[in-house]
Amino acid sequence: MAASLTSPPATATGRTVTLRAKRRRSALVTLAFLAPWLIGFAFFFAYPLLSTVYFSFMHYDGFRPPTWTGTRNWSYVFTEYPLFWPALRNTLWLVVVMVTTRVVFGLGVGLLITRIKLGTGVFRTAFYLPYLAPPVAATMAFAFLLNPGTGPVDHLLGDVGLPQPGWFNDPAWSKPALTMLALWGVGDLMVIFMAALLDVPREQYEAAELDGAGAWQRFRFVTLPNISPIVMFAVVTGVIQTMQYYTQPMIAGQVASGVIGNSGQQFEPGYPDKSTLTLPQLVYNLGFQHFDTGSACVIALVLFALAMAFTALLMRRRGGLIQAGD
């Protein structure tokens, strides 16, 4: 009788131990599958980020051991470094204007090509090919085309009586010229939007037409809600890419200033008059040209904070880009 009274608790204890063992094995299996990602995250994101934070409080030139300086690098970048605030303004301008125009233009091209009945493949190829051009070659070609003295664009504008801007040689037109270059290579967004547009259910368009909806109403109430996650993806990735915008403004400034042909000559970015200066250029300029790793790390952290802030702002559902049901 005593044995029968004590056996159920022993059985319950055994089941608990077995359940714990199964959970432990499941956790180990899950951890094994996650191990490649965790290792990559630790070595390629967490460690560089923590190192950047560490060096932002150090004086380090890459040759001698780092020495603690506290917030001296932060104070220097925000209050003494004359190129930081122009670069920040330019970067924010490019994020707001360039990303917006690329998304709108890419969506417009995608809508246009999906409506074309004949020659769709030709137009799709023609719009996508510029995206495949190397950034350096594309920027150099644009700089020569928009050259105010010898470029064909200003000659054509002059022939029809329109103003002839200085483009990459004019601080007021350099960023619009970079935006034009970005629109020329909008083929990546065009392909993404075309895939999303072709996936919109035709039944919804037919129902909207039966209700008397016009073209704008169909786009607003049928097309846009269905492709809103793709719009969000395009905006977020565009912001992140623009935060890393380095090659095009650097090459455009070098070509426009005539420095690109002089080998071995150090070039200070931002020509003309700091109008093409961006924060990634300052990271390279400080860290690899002036060997001020601490200040370069400060600007890198500012870039990281801005990218996270923009992404968090865009990912808020009440922002309107993603519908509540997505």
Results as ranks from 00 to 15, higher is better:
Met1Leu: 11
Ser4Asp: 10
Ser4Arg: 12
Thr6Glu: 10
Thr13Ala: 14
Gly14Glu: 08
Thr16Pro: 00
Val17His: 06
Arg24Ile: 08
Leu28Gly: 02
Ala32Asp: 04
Trp37Phe: 15
Gly40Leu: 10
Thr52Pro: 02
Val53Leu: 13
His59Ser: 15
Tyr60Asn: 09
Gly62Thr: 08
Phe63Ile: 13
Pro65Phe: 03
Trp85Val: 09
Pro86Asp: 07
Arg89Gln: 13
Thr91His: 05
Val95His: 12
Val96Ala: 15
Thr100Gly: 08
Val104Met: 04
Val104Cys: 09
Leu107Phe: 10
Leu107Lys: 09
Gly110Tyr: 03
Ile113Leu: 13
Arg115Pro: 02
Thr120Pro: 00
Tyr131Lys: 11
Pro134Thr: 06
Val136Glu: 06
Met140Leu: 13
Leu156Pro: 05
Leu156Thr: 07
Asp159Ile: 09
Leu162Gly: 04
Pro165Leu: 12
Pro165Tyr: 05
Gly166Tyr: 10
Gly166His: 13
Lys175Gly: 04
Lys175His: 06
Trp184Arg: 05
Trp184Met: 02
Gly187Met: 02
Leu189Val: 01
Met190Gly: 00
Met194Asp: 07
Ala195Lys: 04
Leu198Tyr: 03
Pro201Ser: 06
Pro201Met: 02
Glu203Leu: 04
Gln204Thr: 00
Gln204Asn: 05
Gly214Thr: 08
Ala215Pro: 02
Trp216Asp: 00
Gln217Thr: 13
Phe219Tyr: 07
Arg220Phe: 00
Thr223Trp: 05
Phe233Lys: 00
Val235Phe: 01
Ile240Leu: 15
Ala252Phe: 01
Ala252Ser: 06
Gly253Thr: 08
Gly258Val: 10
Ile260Gly: 09
Asn262Pro: 00
Ser263Val: 12
Glu268Tyr: 12
Tyr271Ile: 02
Lys274Trp: 11
Thr278Trp: 08
Gly287Glu: 08
Gly287Met: 12
Gly287Tyr: 12
Gln289Lys: 15
His290Phe: 14
Asp292Trp: 10
Thr293Gly: 07
Gly294Phe: 08
Cys297Asn: 15
Phe304Gln: 07
Ala305Lys: 06
Ala307Cys: 10
Leu313Ser: 13
Gly319His: 03
